[in-house]
Amino acid sequence: MAKLQVAIDLLTTEAALELASKVAPYVDIIELGTPLIKAEGLKVVTAMKNAHPEKLVFADMKTADTGALEAEIAFKAGADLVTVMGTVDDATIKGAVEAAKKYGKQVVVDTIGVKDRVKRAKEVTAFGVAFVELHAGLDEQALPGYSVETLINEGREAQVPFSVAGGVNLNTIKDVVAAGATVAVAGGAIYGAEDPAEAAKALKEAIEA
Rank of each mutant, 00 (worst) to 15 (best):
E14P: 03
D90I: 05
A179R: 12
D175L: 10
F131H: 13
K22L: 15
S147C: 06
D65M: 03
L17G: 12
T87M: 14
L81N: 05
I173F: 09
E154H: 05
P144K: 06
G67E: 07
A193K: 11
I30N: 06
Q159D: 15
T87H: 04
I173N: 11
K204P: 05
A15M: 01
L143F: 03
A178C: 05
P25K: 04
R117K: 15
V57W: 03
I93K: 00
A51T: 11
N50H: 07
I152R: 02
V183K: 08
E123W: 03
G166P: 03
T13I: 12
Y191C: 07
G86F: 04
V88D: 09
G187S: 04
S163F: 06
V168N: 09
E157T: 13
V114T: 06
N171P: 00
A91M: 12
D28H: 13
V57H: 08
T13W: 01
V27W: 00
D80W: 01
A16G: 11
L170Q: 13
D9R: 05
V6F: 01
M48F: 12
D65H: 06
Y146S: 08
A186D: 10
E54M: 01
R120V: 13
A68D: 15
V44W: 09
G113P: 01
G33F: 01
E70V: 09
D90R: 14
T182P: 00
K101I: 01
L11R: 12
K102V: 10
A51V: 11
I29H: 00
A16N: 10
A186R: 04
A189I: 07
V109M: 06
V185I: 15
A202M: 14
A200I: 08
K62V: 10
F127H: 13
G167T: 00
K22T: 10
V118T: 09
E198L: 15
A209G: 15
A71K: 03
L10E: 06
G95I: 07
G104T: 03
E208F: 05
A99Q: 02
K174C: 01
A16Q: 05
T83E: 08
D28F: 09
T111M: 15
K55M: 07
K22I: 13
I37G: 02
E198M: 10
E40R: 07
F75D: 08
S21I: 00
A20N: 12
A136E: 14
A77R: 11
P53Q: 10
S21D: 14
F127P: 03
A71C: 13
G86C: 02
D60A: 10
K102E: 14
P161W: 08
M85F: 05
L56S: 13
F75M: 12
Y191W: 15
S163M: 06
G95F: 07
A130F: 14
A39W: 02
A74E: 10
K62T: 09
